[in-house]
Amino acid sequence: MARFTTWLRVNSQHYLLQDAHVRMARKCGYPTPPVRGSIFWTKIFVPVYRLMPWALRRPIMRAIPGSHRKRWPIQMQPEGPAI
């Protein structure tokens, strides 16, 4: 399981970042970097991921095993100045 989740994380991160590089280069007016990789990751995974709403993506990402699923302190909300 750990090997699969690591493989999934490494590849999804790589191809989503590659896509982000293209988008950021276009936005900032820089030369667009080449898109490399298999059809599955570049033509299927990335577009499908981007079509999913954030509200759906987040629970899927959280379902992957890791430290984020262990017990961590809940953030205290700001309560204004001390005095």
Binding site: A2, T5, P65, G66, S67, K70
Partner: peptide, 13 residues
């Protein structure tokens, strides 16, 4: 000892 998706060891707080 268990690892997460980064390959790092899973820990709690």
């Amino acid at each position: 000892i268990k690892t997460g998706s980064t390959g790092g060891l899973i820990v709690d707080s």
